[in-house]
Protein backbone atom coordinates (compact mmCIF):
# COMPACT_ATOMS: atom_id res chain seq x y z
CA UNK A 1 0.00 0.00 0.00
CA UNK A 2 1.43 3.38 -1.01
CA UNK A 3 0.87 6.50 1.09
CA UNK A 4 -2.26 8.60 0.51
CA UNK A 5 -1.58 11.75 -1.44
CA UNK A 6 -4.95 13.22 -0.47
CA UNK A 7 -7.17 12.45 2.49
CA UNK A 8 -10.53 13.88 3.49
CA UNK A 9 -11.60 13.15 7.05
CA UNK A 10 -15.12 13.45 8.43
CA UNK A 11 -16.35 16.04 5.94
CA UNK A 12 -19.68 17.66 6.70
CA UNK A 13 -21.23 20.08 4.18
CA UNK A 14 -24.85 21.10 3.80
CA UNK A 15 -26.58 23.58 1.51
CA UNK A 16 -29.90 24.86 2.83
CA UNK A 17 -30.26 21.77 4.97
CA UNK A 18 -29.43 19.35 2.13
CA UNK A 19 -26.37 17.29 3.03
CA UNK A 20 -23.74 17.15 0.31
CA UNK A 21 -21.25 15.39 2.60
CA UNK A 22 -22.30 13.77 5.85
CA UNK A 23 -19.18 12.79 7.75
CA UNK A 24 -17.43 11.39 4.68
CA UNK A 25 -13.82 10.20 4.75
CA UNK A 26 -11.92 9.26 1.61
CA UNK A 27 -8.32 8.86 0.59
CA UNK A 28 -6.51 8.56 -2.70
CA UNK A 29 -3.18 6.78 -2.96
CA UNK A 30 -0.23 7.95 -4.98
CA UNK A 31 -0.58 6.65 -8.54
CA UNK A 32 -4.27 5.77 -8.29
CA UNK A 33 -7.01 6.64 -10.80
CA UNK A 34 -9.97 7.03 -8.49
CA UNK A 35 -13.39 7.46 -10.08
CA UNK A 36 -16.31 8.94 -8.20
CA UNK A 37 -19.74 8.08 -9.50
CA UNK A 38 -23.19 8.87 -8.25
CA UNK A 39 -26.48 10.49 -9.20
CA UNK A 40 -26.73 14.18 -10.04
CA UNK A 41 -26.75 16.35 -6.95
CA UNK A 42 -25.09 13.68 -4.81
CA UNK A 43 -22.25 16.04 -3.83
CA UNK A 44 -19.45 14.85 -6.11
CA UNK A 45 -18.50 18.28 -7.42
CA UNK A 46 -18.79 19.62 -3.87
CA UNK A 47 -16.06 17.18 -2.86
CA UNK A 48 -13.79 18.59 -5.59
CA UNK A 49 -14.64 22.12 -4.46
CA UNK A 50 -13.65 21.26 -0.89
CA UNK A 51 -10.44 19.48 -1.90
CA UNK A 52 -9.35 22.51 -3.96
CA UNK A 53 -10.27 25.12 -1.36
CA UNK A 54 -13.16 26.64 -3.30
CA UNK A 55 -15.58 25.97 -0.45
CA UNK A 56 -14.86 25.13 3.17
CA UNK A 57 -16.54 22.22 4.93
CA UNK A 58 -18.73 22.79 7.97
CA UNK A 59 -16.43 20.36 9.77
CA UNK A 60 -13.76 17.85 8.87
CA UNK A 61 -10.38 18.29 7.26
CA UNK A 62 -8.50 17.73 4.01
CA UNK A 63 -4.87 16.62 4.08
CA UNK A 64 -2.42 16.77 1.19
CA UNK A 65 0.66 14.64 1.84
CA UNK A 66 -0.37 14.68 5.49
CA UNK A 67 -0.55 18.50 5.69
CA UNK A 68 -3.84 20.19 6.49
CA UNK A 69 -5.04 22.23 3.48
CA UNK A 70 -8.66 22.67 4.59
CA UNK A 71 -8.38 26.44 5.03
CA UNK A 72 -6.08 27.15 2.09
CA UNK A 73 -7.19 29.04 -1.01
CA UNK A 74 -7.46 27.41 -4.46
CA UNK A 75 -4.31 29.32 -5.41
CA UNK A 76 -2.30 27.98 -2.48
CA UNK A 77 -3.51 24.43 -3.14
CA UNK A 78 -2.71 24.74 -6.86
CA UNK A 79 0.83 25.78 -5.96
CA UNK A 80 1.14 22.59 -3.92
CA UNK A 81 0.62 20.50 -7.07
CA UNK A 82 -3.15 20.02 -7.29
CA UNK A 83 -4.74 20.93 -10.64
CA UNK A 84 -8.36 20.84 -11.65
CA UNK A 85 -10.37 20.55 -14.86
CA UNK A 86 -13.93 21.73 -14.52
CA UNK A 87 -17.33 20.37 -15.47
CA UNK A 88 -17.97 23.71 -17.21
CA UNK A 89 -14.64 24.64 -18.83
CA UNK A 90 -12.93 27.58 -17.15
CA UNK A 91 -10.93 29.30 -19.87
CA UNK A 92 -9.69 32.74 -20.83
CA UNK A 93 -12.32 33.06 -23.53
CA UNK A 94 -11.00 36.20 -25.21
CA UNK A 95 -7.49 34.78 -25.58
CA UNK A 96 -6.15 32.34 -28.12
CA UNK A 97 -5.98 28.65 -27.30
CA UNK A 98 -2.17 28.75 -27.32
CA UNK A 99 -2.16 31.75 -24.96
CA UNK A 100 -4.36 29.86 -22.48
CA UNK A 101 -1.76 27.11 -22.51
CA UNK A 102 1.28 29.36 -22.32
CA UNK A 103 -0.16 31.32 -19.40
CA UNK A 104 -0.67 28.06 -17.49
CA UNK A 105 2.90 27.02 -18.28
CA UNK A 106 4.21 30.44 -17.22
CA UNK A 107 2.26 30.19 -13.97
CA UNK A 108 3.91 26.84 -13.25
CA UNK A 109 7.36 28.10 -14.18
CA UNK A 110 6.95 31.07 -11.88
CA UNK A 111 8.10 33.35 -14.69
CA UNK A 112 6.58 36.48 -13.25
CA UNK A 113 8.78 38.62 -15.38
CA UNK A 114 7.15 41.80 -16.61
CA UNK A 115 9.76 42.01 -19.34
CA UNK A 116 10.19 38.56 -20.91
CA UNK A 117 7.39 37.75 -23.34
CA UNK A 118 4.79 35.09 -22.65
CA UNK A 119 5.42 33.67 -26.09
CA UNK A 120 8.82 32.01 -25.71
CA UNK A 121 9.92 29.35 -28.20
CA UNK A 122 10.32 26.60 -25.62
CA UNK A 123 7.03 27.47 -23.93
CA UNK A 124 5.18 27.50 -27.24
CA UNK A 125 6.62 24.08 -28.15
CA UNK A 126 5.55 22.65 -24.79
CA UNK A 127 2.08 24.16 -25.17
CA UNK A 128 1.72 22.70 -28.66
CA UNK A 129 2.79 19.26 -27.45
CA UNK A 130 0.04 19.31 -24.82
CA UNK A 131 -2.50 20.57 -27.35
CA UNK A 132 -1.44 17.75 -29.65
CA UNK A 133 -2.02 15.31 -26.79
CA UNK A 134 -5.68 16.34 -26.49
CA UNK A 135 -6.15 16.72 -30.25
CA UNK A 136 -6.28 20.51 -30.38
CA UNK A 137 -3.01 21.24 -32.21
CA UNK A 138 -4.89 22.63 -35.22
CA UNK A 139 -6.86 25.03 -33.02
CA UNK A 140 -3.83 26.68 -31.40
CA UNK A 141 -4.42 30.11 -32.91
CA UNK A 142 -8.19 30.20 -32.51
CA UNK A 143 -9.81 32.40 -29.90
CA UNK A 144 -10.90 29.92 -27.25
CA UNK A 145 -14.49 31.21 -27.10
CA UNK A 146 -14.95 30.10 -30.72
CA UNK A 147 -14.21 26.45 -29.94
CA UNK A 148 -17.07 23.95 -29.81
CA UNK A 149 -18.00 22.86 -26.28
CA UNK A 150 -16.22 19.52 -26.51
CA UNK A 151 -12.99 21.17 -27.58
CA UNK A 152 -13.29 23.74 -24.80
CA UNK A 153 -13.46 20.79 -22.43
CA UNK A 154 -10.31 19.33 -23.93
CA UNK A 155 -8.53 22.67 -23.61
CA UNK A 156 -9.56 22.90 -19.97
CA UNK A 157 -7.94 19.51 -19.36
CA UNK A 158 -4.81 20.52 -21.27
CA UNK A 159 -4.53 23.71 -19.19
CA UNK A 160 -4.72 21.62 -16.01
CA UNK A 161 -2.03 19.28 -17.36
CA UNK A 162 0.19 22.26 -18.17
CA UNK A 163 0.51 22.90 -14.44
CA UNK A 164 2.42 19.58 -14.21
CA UNK A 165 0.38 18.56 -11.17
CA UNK A 166 0.96 15.62 -8.86
CA UNK A 167 -2.77 15.27 -8.38
CA UNK A 168 -5.31 16.03 -11.08
CA UNK A 169 -9.00 16.42 -10.28
CA UNK A 170 -11.24 15.99 -13.33
CA UNK A 171 -14.92 16.84 -13.18
CA UNK A 172 -16.70 14.79 -15.86
CA UNK A 173 -13.81 14.87 -18.35
CA UNK A 174 -15.80 13.25 -21.14
CA UNK A 175 -19.06 15.18 -20.86
CA UNK A 176 -19.60 17.29 -23.94
CA UNK A 177 -16.94 15.30 -25.82
CA UNK A 178 -18.32 13.42 -28.83
CA UNK A 179 -18.69 9.64 -28.60
CA UNK A 180 -16.04 9.24 -31.30
CA UNK A 181 -13.51 11.37 -29.40
CA UNK A 182 -14.26 10.03 -25.93
CA UNK A 183 -12.08 6.93 -25.80
CA UNK A 184 -9.18 8.32 -27.85
CA UNK A 185 -9.15 11.28 -25.42
CA UNK A 186 -9.18 9.04 -22.37
CA UNK A 187 -6.45 6.81 -23.84
CA UNK A 188 -4.24 9.84 -24.47
CA UNK A 189 -5.06 11.34 -21.09
CA UNK A 190 -4.41 8.17 -19.12
CA UNK A 191 -1.20 7.62 -21.07
CA UNK A 192 -0.05 11.11 -20.16
CA UNK A 193 -1.00 10.63 -16.52
CA UNK A 194 0.93 7.35 -16.29
CA UNK A 195 3.93 8.81 -18.12
CA UNK A 196 4.02 11.87 -15.86
CA UNK A 197 3.14 9.83 -12.74
CA UNK A 198 0.11 11.95 -12.01
CA UNK A 199 -2.49 10.67 -9.59
CA UNK A 200 -6.05 11.37 -10.75
CA UNK A 201 -9.45 11.65 -9.17
CA UNK A 202 -12.27 11.94 -11.65
CA UNK A 203 -15.99 12.40 -11.37
CA UNK A 204 -17.68 10.60 -14.27
CA UNK A 205 -21.12 9.57 -15.48
CA UNK A 206 -20.00 7.35 -18.35
CA UNK A 207 -19.75 3.89 -16.78
CA UNK A 208 -17.82 2.48 -19.75
CA UNK A 209 -15.12 5.06 -19.17
CA UNK A 210 -15.08 4.30 -15.44
CA UNK A 211 -14.94 0.54 -15.99
CA UNK A 212 -12.07 0.83 -18.42
CA UNK A 213 -9.85 3.45 -16.76
CA UNK A 214 -10.49 3.63 -13.00
CA UNK A 215 -8.28 1.63 -10.67
CA UNK A 216 -10.82 2.15 -7.89
CA UNK A 217 -14.40 3.40 -7.82
CA UNK A 218 -16.21 5.24 -5.07
CA UNK A 219 -19.97 5.53 -5.20
CA UNK A 220 -21.31 8.77 -3.72
CA UNK A 221 -24.96 9.04 -2.84
CA UNK A 222 -26.83 11.62 -0.76
CA UNK A 223 -23.67 12.84 0.91
CA UNK A 224 -22.41 9.39 1.83
CA UNK A 225 -20.23 6.67 0.32
CA UNK A 226 -22.51 3.88 -0.77
CA UNK A 227 -19.84 1.51 -2.06
CA UNK A 228 -16.14 1.43 -2.81
CA UNK A 229 -13.76 -0.97 -4.56
CA UNK A 230 -12.43 -2.17 -7.90
CA UNK A 231 -14.73 -1.37 -10.87
CA UNK A 232 -15.85 -4.99 -11.31
CA UNK A 233 -16.68 -5.28 -7.57
CA UNK A 234 -18.65 -2.03 -7.53
CA UNK A 235 -20.54 -2.71 -10.75
CA UNK A 236 -21.64 -6.11 -9.45
CA UNK A 237 -23.07 -4.57 -6.29
CA UNK A 238 -26.85 -4.91 -6.57
CA UNK A 239 -27.58 -1.71 -4.65
CA UNK A 240 -25.26 0.32 -6.90
CA UNK A 241 -26.74 -1.23 -10.05
CA UNK A 242 -30.22 -0.35 -8.94
CA UNK A 243 -29.73 3.14 -7.50
CA UNK A 244 -26.83 4.58 -9.47
CA UNK A 245 -26.37 2.74 -12.73
CA UNK A 246 -30.07 2.22 -13.23
CA UNK A 247 -30.11 -1.49 -14.08
CA UNK A 248 -31.37 -4.29 -11.88
Amino acid sequence: MTRPILEARGLHVAFNGVKAADGVSISIQDGEFLAIIGPNGAGKTTLLNICTGYIRPGSGSVLLDGHDITRLSPRAIARRGVARAFQIPQLFSAQRVIDNMMLALAAKDGLWSAIRPLDLGTRRAEAKALLDLVGLADDADRISSTLPEGHRKLLDIAVALALKPRLLLLDEPTSGVSALERFPLMEALMGALRQRRITALFVEHDMDVVARYASRVLVWNAGNIMAEGRPDEVFSNAQVRERVIGVA
Binding site: S93, Q95, A114
Partner: peptide, 26 residues
Protein backbone atom coordinates in the same frame (compact mmCIF):
# COMPACT_ATOMS: atom_id res chain seq x y z
CA UNK B 1 6.66 44.51 -23.25
CA UNK B 2 4.74 44.44 -19.99
CA UNK B 3 1.47 43.74 -21.82
CA UNK B 4 3.13 40.94 -23.82
CA UNK B 5 4.61 39.36 -20.68
CA UNK B 6 2.89 36.70 -18.55
CA UNK B 7 1.85 39.49 -16.18
CA UNK B 8 0.22 41.43 -19.02
CA UNK B 9 -1.62 38.37 -20.28
CA UNK B 10 -2.72 37.55 -16.74
CA UNK B 11 -4.11 41.08 -16.52
CA UNK B 12 -6.27 40.52 -19.62
CA UNK B 13 -7.23 37.13 -18.18
CA UNK B 14 -8.69 38.82 -15.09
CA UNK B 15 -11.44 40.14 -17.35
CA UNK B 16 -12.17 36.64 -18.71
CA UNK B 17 -11.92 34.32 -15.76
CA UNK B 18 -10.61 35.05 -12.29
CA UNK B 19 -11.48 31.56 -11.07
CA UNK B 20 -9.17 29.93 -13.59
CA UNK B 21 -6.38 32.35 -12.70
CA UNK B 22 -6.67 31.36 -9.04
CA UNK B 23 -6.63 27.68 -10.02
CA UNK B 24 -3.44 28.31 -12.00
CA UNK B 25 -1.89 29.50 -8.75
CA UNK B 26 -1.78 33.11 -9.95
Amino acid sequence: RYLNSPLGHALSAVHSNEIRLEYLGI
